[in-house]
Nucleic acid binder design. Sequence first.
RNA 1: GCCCCCGUAGCUCAGGGGAUAGAGCGUCGCCCUCCGGAGGCGAAAGCGCAGGUUCGAAUCCUGCCGGGGGCACCA
Length: 548
Amino acid sequence: MTPDKLSQAIRSVLTEAVESGELTAAVPGEVRVERPRNRQHGDWSTNVALQLAKAAGVPPRDLAQLVAKRLAEVPGITSVDVAGPGFLNIVVDAAAAGELARTIVESGGRYGDNDALSGHVVNLEFVSANPTGPLHIGHTRWAALGDALGRVLSAAGADVTREFYVNDAGAQMDRFGASVLARMHGDDVPEDGYHGEYVVELAQKVRAELEARGEDADLAGLEEVRDLAYQAQLDELQQVLADFGVLFDVWFSERTLHDSGAVTQAVERLREQGHVYDSEGAVWLRTTEFGDDRDRVLVRSDGSTTYFAADAAYYLSKKDRGFDEKVYMLGADHHGYVGRLKAIAACAGDDPERSIEVLIGQLVTISGARLSKRAGNIVELRDVVAWLGRDAVRYSLARYPADSPITLDPDLLTKRSNDNPVFYVQYAHARTCNVTRLALEDGVRTDEGFDPSLLTDETESVLLATLGEFPGVVATAAELREPHRVARYLESLAAAYHKWYDTCRVRPMDADEPVTDLHRTRLRLNEATRVVLARGLDLLGVSAPERM
RNA sequence: GCCCCCGUAGCUCAGGGGAUAGAGCGUCGCCCUCCGGAGGCGAAAGCGCAGGUUCGAAUCCUGCCGGGGGCACCA
């Protein structure tokens, strides 16, 4: 008896009641079934009676009584109580609950996948760091959270494309090139240039590359140096992200938008939509029409196009490539950008609320983190990963909602105890593996003797109910774009598992104790927990070690 | 001035209108003849303030207070 089966059962009970004339109400398309906070309130509960009461013109408790009476007849349900203002508290049979262990093990790791977002075509843009320097801790947060979100969206059935927008056009590229060129000649970088020591490294790489080509490095011009340095820096970004376990489907170059004429075409397309006007020698987009606080320039009075124009072209590219939903993950310092972005969508004739979603990430600080002189006094991704470990960094950053500012405690993240959430969850997984290994050595087999009615311990019903929540957690995480829900869920699952482990033995105590169906059935439950812990960690891009 | 985010236990943070607001750390106490104590059990301790909507508000709305960030023909 899983929450979705219960939900269906409640719906059919409601439908029967309506058909028999006992009830006059519209049966909701989906009935939410929740785990009550208090175990005294049963395995599952629903407030459907409270919600329908008004429309049905029946007191909530009466309606609840009516549903409870019919629901109690459903096979697999032990009892249904009406509580408080009209909650339905449901207790399910051990056997019906325990079947889930079999289902999960037989699903082969697909348990949790669902169709909450099937049919959704999503473009997920994240990180999108300038290719003029290394990745910092803010980018690291996006990399961890964005990648986890991508995995969660896929698990919920969405068709996801992960995209990195490379800002390889514009004045900052020339400042970048000039900085590298200066370093090649042993000069100081210009005041408005890039000062980190990585620029010196890039200068060396460019020099080596030029010499390998048989060219005189000292004669190389700004453009050539800029483009070689850009390529080297982009390679590094791709490598660092790949090492972090974050892969993109598309690396989208801003420059190609300019070179292909897409930017100019975008201005014309928006003009055709009637939202473009000329003033003071510049070309403007009337974004104020759609809530922006001022209109924005597309083409400057000197004829050059703005970054904003490229953004409009980029938006249209996403639209043309068939993405209905475009998710942008931006730093808090870019929030002012949201209105403009939505205005572009509106000017293009789309519904901005539907087609654009912007997730704003608040600041991350790591207590005691050293600034990277190499990277220009930032906290650099690769330093943090080398320091704290990939799993700890990924998990810690994915465990908080994007809009929550976070402070990470390095001492905690490197501890090997339940102080440290990532170890707590990984350890639970390792423990499941250990239990299985030892049980198999003891001759406990899972291909026979599975009898879920034996899973009667309180800790077993809690563990089973927690396992039952997983698909709903994944669906919710995808719908709300909140992958941290998966992490929080895993922590509660690990806790339920440890409590069960403490109370219920999977293996015989010693060689004299015979192996029984209870051992075999519990081993199946142990396996089911292992599968869900592993899948959950995988959704976060964190490894699930078999031993620690 | 305008806009966005945040304010929950001593600390770091969860809580998509529901029942007695949770977790870890820290403090105090308990459990090792027991599959890994890298674990478990328990105690004390909290929704910034004031209104409103609702049968019901930490959650939604308004105002105030406090903290962070943003308001270019930069990228």
